[in-house]
């Protein structure tokens, strides 16, 4: 990369007594209840919780797409007043522009900043190299596999050099093999371009493998019920998941998410930023 960021100095998140309600006034539903936590600059935090616990809602508020009903969110001391390229948002799938070639998808953030075409294409090439997709510049997203599409997605948000990356189950739609590969890939990219990451997942292994620290959320209304610094060294590889400490932590998380081995009642997903389209395959031939 042209300007490798060393230790991050920006991207400190401060969430204070946050409550979020969804729905029309009068019949709204509390989705996030009294959540407070901080994320240090350059830290990798995983929010772990069952489906429908309000994780995505919390992330939507961090991105600036949803307005909290009480409490505050500050990034580097400044309150959030809407979406901003410094807070990058990565969804599960199908959020690349199907009508733009891969290189133009990646260069989109710079186009919005008014950067000249030559320059933004050059930077997009650099980032595509970083995520291992050199040679696929002129493909359309539908011509790429799910894992490759998520690499493009990561390159597309990194071009803005965000302070914070907000990832909403980004590998949730991938098969197990590709998912492992993408987790290692994300850690490698993150070691080169250091941002704070808030990563949402309901997969315990994924959270433990990736994070510096995990926050466990309860079913709706979502509260933080546990916080744990993992203390695994970096770089990490596949052998980590069979270590005794990892398994001990996994057992602990399982107990928190399924107390007494029972599955919690399923909650309807609210998806305030829209569901993954059911006919999502219409663009992926």
């Amino acid at each position: 990369m042209s300007s490798p960021a060393s230790a991050a100095t920006l991207g400190h998140i401060d969430i204070d007594h946050l409550h979020i309600h969804l729905g029309e006034p009068g019949q709204s539903l509390e989705v996030v209840h009294n959540v407070s936590f901080t994320v240090a600059a350059g830290e990798f935090v995983c929010l772990l919780g069952p489906s429908g616990c309000g994780k995505s809602t919390l992330l939507g508020a961090l991105a600036g797409h949803l307005v909290p009903s009480h409490g505050s969110i500050r990034v580097d001391g400044l309150p959030i007043s809407g979406p901003h390229p410094e807070r990058a948002l990565v969804f599960q799938q199908h959020t690349l522009f199907p009508w733009k070639r891969v290189v133009d998808n990646v260069a989109f953030g710079l186009k919005m900043k008014g950067v000249a075409r030559d320059q933004r294409q050059r930077q997009a090439h650099d980032l595509l190299n970083l995520v291992g997709l050199e040679g696929f510049e002129n493909h359309y997203p539908a011509q790429l596999s799910g894992g490759m599409q998520q690499r493009v997605e990561i390159a597309r948000v990194l071009i803005n050099y965000p302070r914070v990356m907000l990832m909403d189950e980004p590998f949730g739609a991938l098969d197990a093999q590709t998912r492992l590969m993408m987790q290692e890939h994300l850690l490698e990219v993150w070691s080169r371009i250091r941002t704070s990451i808030v990563f949402i997942t309901h997969d315990i292994d994924e959270a433990l493998f990736l994070a510096d620290r995990i926050l466990v959320m309860s079913p709706r209304p979502g509260r933080i019920i546990d916080e744990r610094r993992l203390g695994f060294g970096r770089p990490r590889d596949g052998s980590l998941v069979t270590s005794a400490r990892f398994i001990e932590l996994k057992r602990h998380c399982l107990e928190l998410l399924h107390p007494g081995g029972k599955h919690p009642a399923y909650l309807e997903r609210l998806s305030p930023l829209g569901k993954v389209p059911a006919n999502a395959s219409s663009f992926s031939v």
């Binding site: 990058a88 969804f91 959020t95 919005m112 930023l273």
Partner: peptide
Amino acid sequence: VSPRLIASARSLGCGRWS
């Protein structure tokens, strides 16, 4: 048009008119 696509675009710095 998927609301996720719109949210992604807005988070990438896309303004109301673009």
